[in-house]
C-alpha cells in the first residue's frame, strides 16, 4: 500500500469516528429532517471516495504515490521551523502577551529560516521588536483591533 492508500484508510477511520459522533445528536420529532441527515450524506460520499482512492492505490501497487526520489528530511526544515515556532507562539500569546510573544516569534523565525549563524541573531531580534511594536501601534492603537494581553496583566 502506498501513501494514498494509507491516507484513504485514515479517512475511512475518520468517517467512522464522525459517524459515531453523529449518533449522539438528539433528534427533534417536530422536524422531519434530522440535523444529522446532511453530515451523514457527506460522510457516506467521503467514505465512498476514500474507498475509490484505496482501490486505485492498491491497483497501482502504490507506484504513483511513492515512485521517484523522495526528498530528505532537510527539505522539510522550513515547514518544521514554521509549524514548531507557530504552535509555540500560539501557546505563548495568552501567557506572555502579544508584544513579547511576537518579538520572540519573529526573531526565532527570521533566524531559523535563514542561514543559522549566530551573528544574525541581533538582526533577527531587531526585526522581531520592530514588527511587534509597529503592528501593536497600528492594530491596537489606531485600528482598535484588540491583541492578546499577557495573562498576568489580568
Amino acid at each position: 500500500m502506498g501513501r494514498d492508500g494509507a491516507i484513504a484508510v485514515g479517512l475511512l477511520a475518520l468517517c467512522a469516528l464522525l459517524w459515531a459522533q453523529l449518533g449522539k445528536v438528539p433528534s427533534n420529532p417536530l422536524v422531519p429532517i434530522s440535523p444529522t441527515f446532511y453530515p451523514k450524506l457527506l460522510l457516506g460520499v467521503t467514505a465512498f471516495l476514500a474507498l475509490a482512492l484505496l482501490v486505485a492505490d492498491l491497483r497501482a501497487g502504490g507506484r504513483r504515490a511513492t515512485g521517484g526520489a523522495q526528498p530528505g528530511w532537510e527539505a522539510y526544515r522550513p515547514a518544521g521551523v514554521c509549524f514548531g515556532l507557530s504552535v509555540l507562539y500560539a501557546f505563548l500569546l495568552p501567557g506572555i502577551g502579544y508584544l513579547a510573544a511576537t518579538t520572540l516569534y519573529v526573531a526565532g523565525l527570521a533566524w531559523g529560516l535563514g542561514p543559522p549563524i549566530p551573528r544574525r541573531i541581533p538582526g533577527a531580534l531587531l526585526l522581531g521588536l520592530a514588527t511587534s511594536g509597529v503592528t501593536y501601534l497600528i492594530f491596537q492603537g489606531y485600528l482598535h483591533v484588540f491583541l492578546p494581553r499577557a495573562g498576568w496583566l489580568g
Binding site: 514554521c82 500560539a90 500569546l93 511576537t102 523565525l109 526585526l127 514588527t131
Partner: peptide, 25 residues
C-alpha cells in the same frame, strides 16, 4: 527583501487577522 525575513512578518499578520475575527485564541 529575502523571503526568510518576509515570512515571519507575513505570519504575524495572519495570526492578527485570525485573532481579530472574534478576539479569541
Amino acid at each position: 527583501v529575502p523571503t526568510h525575513l518576509l515570512t515571519p512578518v507575513v505570519l504575524v499578520f495572519c495570526v492578527v487577522g485570525a485573532y481579530g475575527l472574534n478576539n479569541v485564541m
